[in-house]
């Protein structure tokens, strides 16, 4: 049975040089190469080419990635903003004549649920982080009750993400209205220096899977919507850190409840 491909074609030889053969193919190619020294030389040369090519640019991996390639900075930037700046200016002129419709479209200013989520989260953040005595409605000492209550009201299994890896401790949370009166949950966290962060959770609309960063008056919200929940992480902090916190919260919120 193993006598199937007696002739080893070039595709297999290339795959051999690139280590993409399974065990059986490796055996067949090895046999072939033993009997065909010219092919053996080719494969050896190709391997050496691979090694040299990798070595030529290996140093790039050791360089720090420049800040301008950081994703948190790039999120929300319209594609080819620089190249299209002139065209944009022209469009804005036209847009003025069309009554502003274009301006919103161009700046990516408002796309429904996600924009509303971000602005509600920012507003709630500003109101409640300023509170000393009533920052939260249910204190962290009743975390289990808080989570059960908010889960029931939002009709989603929620949890309070553990953000201690970022030095953030849960303070507690509250229930809020959003939009036309849908329930939203706000969880508040505090770091060792007293800086406060909020996690704002709403019901997802079941369709969008999007994310965005919005900044208002020095406060940044990173928000996303997926099939099950809409969520925003809000804080007065650099985008990179906020995104890292958001990822952690997202991972924990998305994990199946046990």
């Amino acid at each position: 049975m193993s006598a199937a491909p007696r002739v080893i074609d070039d595709a297999l030889l290339h795959a051999s040089a690139d280590d993409r053969l399974d065990q059986e193919q490796r055996r067949l190619v090895a046999e072939w190469l033993e009997a065909h020294p010219e092919d053996a030389r080719r494969v050896a040369d190709w391997r050496r080419q691979n090694d040299l090519i990798r070595e030529l640019w290996a140093a790039v991996d050791d360089e720090p990635v420049p800040p301008r390639l950081s994703l948190p900075r790039l999120i929300g930037r319209p594609w080819r903003r620089r190249a299209l700046a002139a065209a944009a200016a022209l469009l804005l002129l036209v847009a003025g004549a069309l009554g502003g419709w274009f301006v919103r479209g161009w700046s990516g200013g408002g796309d429904g649920a996600l924009a509303e989520l971000a602005h509600s989260a920012l507003a709630a953040h500003r109101v409640f982080v300023a509170e000393r005595r009533h920052a939260v409605e249910v204190d962290r000492s009743e975390e289990q009750h808080l989570v059960t209550w908010l889960s029931r009201r939002l009709e989603r299994p929620l949890r309070a993400p553990d953000l201690s890896a970022f030095g953030l401790a849960l303070m507690g949370g509250r229930l809020l209205p959003i939009g036309a009166g849908d329930p939203a949950a706000q969880l508040m966290y505090e770091d060792a220096d007293g800086a406060r962060y909020t996690l704002f959770v709403t019901r997802g609309d079941g369709r969008l899977e999007e994310f965005r960063i919005v900044e208002e008056g020095g406060v940044t919200a990173f928000s996303w919507v997926d099939a099950s929940i809409g969520c925003a992480v809000v804080g007065t902090v650099a985008r990179d850190r906020l995104l890292a916190i958001a990822r952690e919260a997202y991972t924990q919120l998305a994990a199946p409840s046990d």
């Binding site: 390639l69 994703l71 899977e209 999007e210 994310f211 997926d226 099950s228 997202y250």
Partner: peptide, 27 residues
Amino acid sequence: AVGAGRSLDFLTDLESCIPSLRRYARA
């Protein structure tokens, strides 16, 4: 992904590709 969204997974994947993109662009 069931239930959970892919939006931030996309970001994580994209970020992990940056070294590869830089190397290839340099080449």
